[in-house]
Amino acid sequence: MRIIKKLGNAFEFFKGTIAINLAVSILPLLFGGLLLFNYSVVSFGFAISLAVKEINSKKEYLFYFNNGLSKGALWFYSWCFNFILLISGIFIFNLINRLF
């Protein structure tokens, strides 16, 4: 039960970073294609979203720490959610591409 609460809190943190990540990763998509977008989502875009979160929402980390999640754990879980989202997106994109 406790791990589900931790994952739920980590997912809330992830939801706060995904919009910035995708916004930053749009530029590589436009100029470099889908492969560069994929790399950007899990690296550069992710790092920028964490930096923005670090600057704008420093006090949020206290909430997560009180719920048993360190900053490193939040970043790790957020990266894992990011990776799962990317793999799911690739799978759906390929499925749609084959159907049409």
Rank of each mutant, 00 (worst) to 15 (best):
A10D: 06
G33I: 04
N66I: 00
L7Y: 00
P28S: 06
Y39T: 02
I90R: 08
I20T: 15
K5D: 09
I20D: 02
L69R: 08
L50T: 02
L99H: 07
S88I: 10
A47W: 07
I90C: 13
F14A: 10
S88E: 05
F93R: 14
R2S: 11
I90D: 13
G72L: 12
V42M: 10
K58S: 10
R2C: 03
G68S: 08
E54Q: 11
G16A: 01
F65G: 04
F11S: 04
A51N: 03
N82W: 00
S40N: 14
G8N: 14
F37T: 01
K15H: 00
N9K: 07
L22E: 03
L30P: 08
L22N: 06
A51M: 13
V41N: 06
L99E: 09
Y39R: 04
E12W: 08
S40D: 14
A47F: 15
G68T: 06
W79F: 14
E54K: 09
K71V: 04
F93A: 11
V42N: 08
G8C: 08
G68H: 10
E54H: 12
E12I: 12
F100R: 08
K15A: 07
I84T: 12
E12N: 11
N82C: 14
K53W: 02
S70C: 04
N67S: 11
W75K: 13
F63Y: 15
L86T: 06
V41G: 08
N66A: 04
S43V: 06
A73V: 09
M1D: 10
L30I: 14
K5W: 06
F65V: 04
